[in-house]
Measured scan of single mutants.
Amino acid sequence: MAAGGDHGSPDSYRSPLASRYASPEMCFVFSDRYKFRTWRQLWLWLAEAEQTLGLPITDEQIQEMKSNLENIDFKMAAEEEKRLRHDVMAHVHTFGHCCPKAAGIIHLGATSCYVGDNTDLIILRNALDLLLPKLARVISRLADFAKERASLPTLGFTHFQPAQLTTVGKRCCLWIQDLCMDLQNLKRVRDDLRFRGVKGTTGTQASFLQLFEGDDHKVEQLDKMVTEKAGFKRAFIITGQTYTRKVDIEVLSVLASLGASVHKICTDIRLLANLKEMEEPFEKQQIGSSAMPYKRNPMRSERCCSLARHLMTLVMDPLQTASVQWFERTLDDSANRRICLAEAFLTADTILNTLQNISEGLVVYPKVIERRIRQELPFMATENIIMAMVKAGGSRQDCHEKIRVLSQQAASVVKQEGGDNDLIERIQVDAYFSPIHSQLDHLLDPSSFTGRASQQVQRFLEEEVYPLLKPYESVMKVKAELCL
């Protein structure tokens, strides 16, 4: 049975990233139509530049190519590739079939990587351009969430054990800070992308030097003109047959890092959902379990974690691919890159769409948070109580021993009897502590235990987050809708 299948058929496997999760716009960027249309555009740009620099290419040939950029006979191309065992030459023939007058000058002087690699770089750039505003929107939604809850005390956790208090907004800023680093890295790697350009079979530009009869300047002009037509500021000066596969490492490393950030955020949300302090959106008709109707599973956060793990592992592909590119190139890269580049971007696209949807509907339960604080705060307040007693004339050592005994009794009630923490009640009825009984409410005010959390939130948002989001103001209103 021949390899390949009808990918629109229910009898043929289709990647869930495309069929179930990723956005239509990201799927289109990695589609065959987008790819092969870009090949034709690159052939047109090459012909236009070659004509401008004096090669015998007519206006009629150029116009014929322009008129057929979208006229792609995919069936013919597939048949040609089956016959020739070469995808680029299959599309040269297919393009030439609908451009008979231009057929002889299509791909003039070029090698397969002229269309293959340059198209990949265009796709990487455009895919990054799709991700950047999506990530900015996630940051914006979380920034709104953090600002609104900047002063809401909550129990902090280290080692997932109760620690000092923080605020809900401050905790959210930990998430935002990681995503801001990801946004900066995505922008950097996007701006650092260079075009492969017009380089020939081993990167020496020998074929173009021959076409222009040894004119170095025209060869350099050709490279520059096509690079500018493709919208790049610069091209690699040095290439082998391909652009260095280190570029793929750079791009997928940034995406993998984004995956790590999203995994951490969504894990926190899942843990908070278990504590009943916070939940992701839950639709009115949504079913959490087929057997347990009360369940409210954090399905979206779980999906993000599941896909983020996949995204983090994909960076190993370009690392290994770059390491086995012998001399000017081997074909070890080809099949692998067809999979890992598309999957990385479709996965990143999915987790950003999902995280935006989550961040637009996060639900906080202040009463649950308050109750958990009441359970733990008495123990945390013991040092403040000791200091207040010393100020009232008591002995630190005597007070410490009193607190120690009462704390152990209260802990026994919590752990052995399943009761509430009654340390404060014990202190309130103990005559030894009568000098500070009137101060206990103040000493137990949760806001006095959150330090500068709310001020940190305000400063972080104003100095770091809002300036970073400013270039994306025009796209901030787009909502994230999930079908599944």
Rank of each mutant, 00 (worst) to 15 (best):
C399P: 04
T204G: 15
R33F: 08
E25A: 14
N185S: 12
L69T: 11
C98W: 09
F30S: 01
D248I: 04
F145Y: 09
A388L: 07
S112H: 00
R171S: 00
S253P: 03
D248Q: 01
T242P: 11
I122C: 09
T244N: 08
A388Q: 06
I238V: 13
H310D: 03
M89F: 10
G169E: 02
L314R: 10
E148Q: 14
Q221F: 11
A235W: 13
E213P: 14
D11H: 15
L314M: 14
G393E: 07
T450N: 04
E277Q: 05
Q285L: 13
I57Y: 00
I57P: 04
I176D: 05
E302W: 02
V247N: 09
L468A: 13
Q416L: 14
F74A: 13
E79Y: 15
V368D: 04
K82W: 12
K284W: 14
Q221I: 09
S31Y: 01
C172P: 05
L174W: 12
G104V: 12
H93I: 08
P56M: 10
S151A: 14
G5W: 12
D268S: 11
D117K: 00
K264N: 01
L142M: 14
S407I: 01
S261M: 02
W175Q: 06
N421W: 00
T354Q: 14
S412Y: 15
N126L: 06
D216G: 15
D192S: 13
V413Y: 13
R188K: 10
L331S: 01
A273D: 10
V368R: 12
F30N: 06
A206F: 03
L130Y: 09
V390Y: 07
V429I: 12
Q210F: 02
L84K: 11
T38K: 07
F345W: 03
H400T: 03
A335D: 01
L423N: 04
G214P: 06
A308L: 02
M312E: 05
A47R: 02
C99G: 06
I269T: 09
F195Q: 02
E277K: 01
I237P: 06
D420F: 05
H91L: 08
M292F: 04
A163T: 02
Q210C: 06
M316K: 02
P56L: 13
H400C: 05
I373L: 14
L121F: 03
Q41W: 15
E148V: 12
R296A: 07
R270Q: 06
A308Y: 04
M89R: 00
T350E: 15
N384W: 05
R372A: 06
A453G: 12
K477L: 14
M89S: 07
M181S: 11
D11M: 11
D268F: 04
K147L: 12
E383R: 02
N421A: 09
H310Q: 07
H7Q: 15
K199V: 04
M292L: 04
R190P: 03
N297D: 02
D129A: 12
Q458K: 15
L377V: 06
D445A: 13
Q325H: 12
V92D: 03
N384P: 14
Q416F: 14
V457T: 12
D182H: 00
F95P: 00
G5T: 15
A49W: 04
I424K: 15
A77F: 15
H93W: 14
A392Q: 11
D333Q: 01
L341E: 11
W39G: 05
D430E: 14
Q41L: 12
G104M: 15
G109L: 01
W326M: 15
D430V: 06
F433Y: 09
L186Q: 07
L352E: 05
I123T: 14
M316S: 13
W175C: 00
F212D: 04
W39S: 09
G418L: 04
S290A: 05
V138K: 05
L443V: 10
T201H: 01
D215T: 08
A102F: 05
I123C: 10
C399Y: 04
P467M: 10
M299F: 06
L252C: 14
R14W: 12
V390T: 08
I351H: 05
L142E: 06
H107C: 05
M278H: 03
V29S: 07
Q416P: 03
M225Y: 10
L443D: 01
F74I: 15
S257H: 06
P378H: 01
D87H: 05
N68F: 09
I386H: 08
T58K: 08
T167H: 05
S434W: 11
L355P: 00
M65W: 01
D6H: 00
I427R: 04
Q61F: 06
K66T: 13
S438C: 12
L211S: 08
R426E: 07
E25D: 14
L275Q: 04
S151C: 11
T267C: 09
A235D: 09
T158E: 00
A392R: 11
T166G: 09
C113E: 08
D117G: 05
D11I: 15
G419R: 14
A90N: 06
A322G: 09
L468Y: 00
K264W: 02
T227D: 02
K147W: 12
E302K: 05
E250M: 09
D223E: 11
H442F: 14
L255I: 10
L44S: 08
A49P: 00
K415I: 07
D73N: 11
F379L: 06
S67R: 14
P298F: 03
G104H: 11
K367V: 03
